[in-house]
């Protein structure tokens, strides 16, 4: 089936169509990010090596002084510890609550699905409102939570929820879990919807009972959702500013001061921008390590 060459071609031109490198459609996003995120990040790293202060615009390079100062700064270590506790407990409790609920509510049908929607509402409540709400409920004297606990006989005297450093952290975490457990419910509900019906039916034919069905069939399907949801929430809680700032501004006695709060206070209350940036950079590195660990775990998922 030798084809006769058409007349029009004197010589066959060979112009390969190449795959192009860049798509202009991503340009607006990349430009905005470069200007508003990229530049400030680079700037932050540079500033972290100076004694920059908003008081005196004059500043000079001080080398690693900020970083060495940081290792001897008890507030930094306290804030790091608080960050880890706040994030770890919030995510762990939120994840378990969300998972349990998603499994319990999985078979809601028809109008009952509205129940799930209602349980999701806290996620949509503005953070500032959550902060106000819990501040109000935890207030002492006169807070409803102490009042309820006393009525139920669980405590004998009111707890100093927002005035003791330890209880304040607990209070902030409780508010945070209220706000975030619905997110996990949302993610797990979606992931449960992704378990193929055939697999469930096959398991039923194999006479899997409720618990073995959950443990052996459903949980493996939820692994990625759990990892991704946890990663997202870890990042978000590491960066959680509004809730803590509105409830306690990091107090009392740095009891709820996390790294975000500390950086903000350094930069905008003490105006030590250089030192604040150094703390920020250390924490950025920390965040990147956590993220890469998670991504590695995700990539290694079984096929």
């Amino acid at each position: 089936m030798q084809a006769a060459l058409p007349k029009a071609t004197g010589r066959v031109r060979r112009r390969r169509q190449r795959t192009r490198w860049f798509d202009w459609m991503t340009a607006p996003a990349l430009i905005v990010l470069a200007v508003v995120v990229g530049y400030p990040i680079v700037d932050a790293v540079l500033v972290s090596f100076t004694n920059y202060s908003l008081y005196t615009p004059l500043h000079h390079y001080v080398g690693g002084v900020n970083y060495s100062h940081l290792s001897n700064d008890p507030v930094f270590w306290k804030s790091l510890q608080n960050t880890v506790i706040f994030t770890g407990v919030s995510v762990a409790v939120g994840l378990l609550l969300g998972l349990g609920l998603a499994l319990a509510l999985e078979r809601l049908r028809g109008p009952w699905r509205f129940l799930r929607a209602i349980l999701l509402t806290p996620w949509a409540v503005p953070v500032i409102v959550t902060a106000f709400l819990f501040e109000f409920m935890f207030t002492n004297p006169g807070g409803i939570i102490n009042s309820l606990l006393e009525t139920a006989g669980l405590i004998h005297s009111p707890l100093p929820w927002l005035t003791s450093p330890t209880w304040a952290l607990t209070a902030v975490i409780i508010a945070n879990v209220w706000m975030q457990a619905p997110f996990f419910l949302l993610i797990f509900t979606a992931a449960l919807g992704g378990v193929p019906d055939e697999v469930i039916e096959a398991a039923r034919i194999d006479r899997a009972r409720t618990w073995s069905m959950i443990a052996l069939i459903k949980l493996p399907y939820l692994r990625n959702a759990a990892l991704v949801g946890a990663l997202l929430m870890i990042i978000q809680n590491f960066n959680n500013f509004p809730l803590i700032w509105a409830m306690t501004t990091g107090g009392p006695a740095y009891g709820t001061s996390t790294l975000v709060i500390y950086v903000y206070q350094l930069a905008f209350t003490s105006f030590k921008l250089g030192y604040a940036s150094a703390v920020g950079v250390v924490w950025l590195v920390l965040l990147m390590i956590i993220t890469s660990l998670f991504i590695r775990t995700l990539r290694s998922r079984p096929a």
């Binding site: 400030p40 932050a44 500033v47 903000y264 920020g280 950025l284």
Partner: peptide, 14 residues
């Protein structure tokens, strides 16, 4: 994944 607060200072100056 970047923490907002890290670059809020430089962003303020910008």
């Amino acid at each position: 994944m970047l923490p907002l607060v890290v670059f809020i200072g430089p962003l303020y100056l910008l």
